[in-house]
């Protein structure tokens, strides 16, 4: 399970959107077409290296902003507009990671040997970028960097926090909850962000 990394709240990636995410200094992107399936790809078009997160979704396809190269859900290139009559060779493909959604979060894996985690769907709370090392953030939350999730009792309910390392000094926290006051949970996590960042800056 440690192989799977939660990188966003599912709520923040609705149909038709692209989203850039930094995962352990790698640039990845999430997009979701009309079929509702979240895709996680390397943020790079194989043609000229353009970041695909700047592209646009139409139907079930992602289009690169630079030359309009169009990719299907299977990451294969469907169309090269400069050559409208060309049947695109199947070797032209974006670099897709294994992706799944569970517990209200989008997860990725670059080595999906283990099955993805199975979690109950909780209510999305918030994603926070915290300018502090994951080790510090996890310690403050009573979690471990060996696990992708932290369970936190909160005001009569539970918070389930996913996290990923953006880089050595930045942690992304993806909070979901059950039975918890969402506004109070959000305020609590923002206060935590502030104290961790003050500590990191000191």
């Amino acid at each position: 399970m440690a192989d799977w990394i939660p990188i966003a709240l599912s709520r923040d990636v609705p149909v038709g959107i692209t989203r850039a995410v930094i995962v352990d200094t790698r640039e990845v992107m999430i997009w979701r077409g009309e079929d509702g399936v979240a895709q996680v790809w390397e943020d790079r078009c194989p043609h000229r290296g353009m970041r695909l997160s700047l592209g646009f979704v139409r139907g079930n396809a992602l289009n690169c902003l630079y030359h309009g190269w169009q990719y299907g859900a299977g990451a294969n290139c469907l169309r090269i507009p400069a050559h409208p009559d060309l049947t695109v060779p199947p070797t032209i493909r974006a670099n897709a990671y294994a992706a799944t959604e569970t517990g209200g979060m989008v997860w990725m894996s670059s080595d999906s040997a283990d099955p993805p985690p199975l979690l109950p769907a909780l209510t999305p709370v918030i994603t926070l970028a915290i300018e502090a090392a994951p080790e510090r953030v996890l310690a403050a939350l009573g979690g471990s960097t060996a696990e992708p999730l932290i369970g936190l009792p909160f005001a009569g309910g539970t918070l389930q926090l996913g996290w990923h390392r953006a880089h050595a000094a930045k942690t992304m926290l993806h909070a979901t909850g059950a039975g918890a006051d969402i506004a109070a949970a959000t305020a609590h996590l923002r206060a935590l962000r502030q104290s961790l960042e003050q500590e990191a800056a000191a």
Binding site: D12, G16, I17, R19, A20, V21, A129, A166
Partner: peptide, 14 residues
């Protein structure tokens, strides 16, 4: 400055 840290801004821009 990229928008990686700002998921709600990403939604609103759309």
């Amino acid at each position: 400055i990229g928008h990686e840290d700002y998921p709600a801004i990403n939604l609103w821009q759309r």
